[in-house]
């Protein structure tokens, strides 16, 4: 099935079996292997990408359902050799060990910071309306869809805390 995906600003025309997940389209058809396959069941978040501005699990959606979509993967976060503030903060705070979950963490956190700016509440937010404050508790709740089996959570949270101020 003919499907057009714009990934990190580049338009791609693909002919896909409808069974191909968005994650497999990125990895196996476009050779963008930054997005990782962890559980393949939406439980670990390693496959998180940003589709039309929203973070999603690329493993639990079909590529054909994203015909015409604008996608950002970890490969699209940096500006050439210049890392995004969040990427730099992950390095500065040791927000990884093996690095397998890191692309998903980065995409998730990038979109999460936008959600906070847009005033979206979380489960731990006291008042549903008004300005959101990004406390540590808020960060851990909002990032609960991304697991890190090396348990680098303290570094990840510290990195996000720092990037949020930039």
């Amino acid at each position: 099935m003919q499907t057009t995906l714009t990934v990190n600003g580049t338009r791609h025309q693909l002919d896909l079996d409808p069974r191909v997940t968005l994650l497999d389209a990125l990895r196996d058809h476009l050779c963008l292997t930054g997005s990782k396959k962890g559980c393949d069941h939406g439980q670990c978040g390693a496959c998180t990408v940003i589709a039309d501005g929203r973070r999603i699990n690329a493993c639990l959606t079909l590529a054909v359902m994203h015909d015409g979509a604008e996608l950002v993967t970890v490969e699209g976060l940096a500006d050439g050799e210049s890392l995004s503030p969040l990427q730099q903060a992950f390095l500065d705070h040791d927000g990884m060990q093996c690095g397998y979950c890191t692309p998903g963490q980065l995409c998730s956190a990038t979109a999460m910071l936008e959600e906070v700016r847009a005033g979206r509440a979380s489960h731990v937010t006291g008042e549903l309306e008004g300005e959101m404050r990004l406390t540590r508790e808020e960060i851990t709740e909002r990032m609960s869809g991304n697991l890190c089996r090396c348990a680098c959570y303290s570094g990840i949270v510290a990195a996000i805390e720092e990037a949020a101020t930039k």
Binding site: R54, H123, L128, R142, S144
Partner: peptide, 19 residues
């Protein structure tokens, strides 16, 4: 209907709720 917002925010993960 804040109880509905609260129930939704207590479910799944942000990525899943976006989908």
């Amino acid at each position: 209907w804040p109880v509905l917002s609260r129930a939704l925010l207590a479910g799944a993960s942000p990525q899943l709720r976006n989908t």
